[in-house]
Amino acid sequence: MVLIEDDDVDGEGAVKPSATEGMIHAVGPFGEDVGKRPASDVEMFAVNAQWLHETLMRLMKPLLSKRAAQILDPDLTLVGAIQIDEADVPVYFARRLNDPKAAQRLDLMLRTRGTAGVGIVFAASEEMPSHLGPNVVMPLLSHLASADEEMLFARDGIELAYRDGLSLARGGVSPRVVRTGKQSGTLFIPGREPLHLAGNDQLTIFERLVVAAAKGSPDVQVKALMEGFESRSPQQAFRKETWDSIRDVYIGKGAKNGYWRLLLTAQPTEAVAEPAEEATV
């Protein structure tokens, strides 16, 4: 993507090769043809990831009670801990949470770190899930301190946002699915770590299971559960590693063959034959 600054166009767009030497073809933010322009008009910038990481750590240092820079994933860094209510709360920094696939990958990673307790994930973007694993997600730039403050980030606002999200990080008070975008949302089950969902299929599957559980008839026939989808089984709506982590934890077989239910308590894994093909989101 490129930033186009023109009398008629102002926003993100793209550039493509042109048949004319020394010229490029520009496409506007809505796919409109912006025409040809000299290649010399295009300036290329690159982000120095190491410099950005070091700068972020330095700016966040005054907030932290413990510092522990550890890159867990190219899009996820453990930066240390902040003390809230006399407890050390793990602090992470995440990128690309506006990408449902990236968010689901990081959610799976953070759920495997659940023993660290409810933590904070600072996000680089405003478009993000509310929770990842047992962690409250908040946009870092929304917590900038006023100009007269010594620290760059407002600690009081961070603590308030953390306390507000703490109950949902522990599953809330009743099962529910909260959509945070057309292709993104979170499943909450009391006493269970939140589960990030990516794609309308995943969201709708769990919405149907939540509704059935609330009605007191938790078992949903697979045909009704998958109505309107190309997939024939809920397994096919998830990547293999995600499905393996949620099967018999959040979703399980019903009392009869061909039925699925929302699991409000964990159950042991059973060897059940399922379709081998998978559709990823």
Rank of each mutant, 00 (worst) to 15 (best):
R96T: 02
L97V: 07
N98E: 09
D99E: 11
P100Q: 06
P100D: 10
P100V: 04
K101R: 10
A102L: 07
A102P: 10
A103V: 05
A103I: 09
A103N: 12
Q104E: 13
Q104S: 15
Q104T: 10
Q104L: 08
L106E: 01
L106V: 10
L108W: 06
L108T: 13
L108D: 10
L110H: 04
L110C: 07
R111W: 01
G114I: 14
G114L: 09
G117P: 06
V118Q: 02
G119C: 09
G119I: 11
I120Q: 03
I120P: 00
I120R: 04
V121R: 05
A123P: 03
A124Q: 09
A124M: 10
E126G: 07
E126N: 06
P129V: 06
S130A: 12
S130N: 12
S130F: 03
H131I: 06
L132Q: 06
L132T: 05
G133D: 00
G133T: 08
P134K: 08
N135C: 13
N135A: 03
V136G: 02
V136P: 07
V136L: 11
V137F: 05
M138A: 05
M138T: 04
M138C: 04
P139I: 13
L140F: 10
L140T: 04
L144G: 00
A145L: 11
A145I: 07
A147S: 10
A147L: 07
D148K: 15
D148T: 14
E149D: 13
E150C: 03
E150K: 14
F153E: 01
A154V: 05
R155S: 04
I158P: 01
E159W: 01
E159D: 12
L160N: 03
A161F: 03
Y162K: 06
R163Q: 11
D164A: 13
G165H: 04
L166T: 05
L166Y: 15
L166N: 10
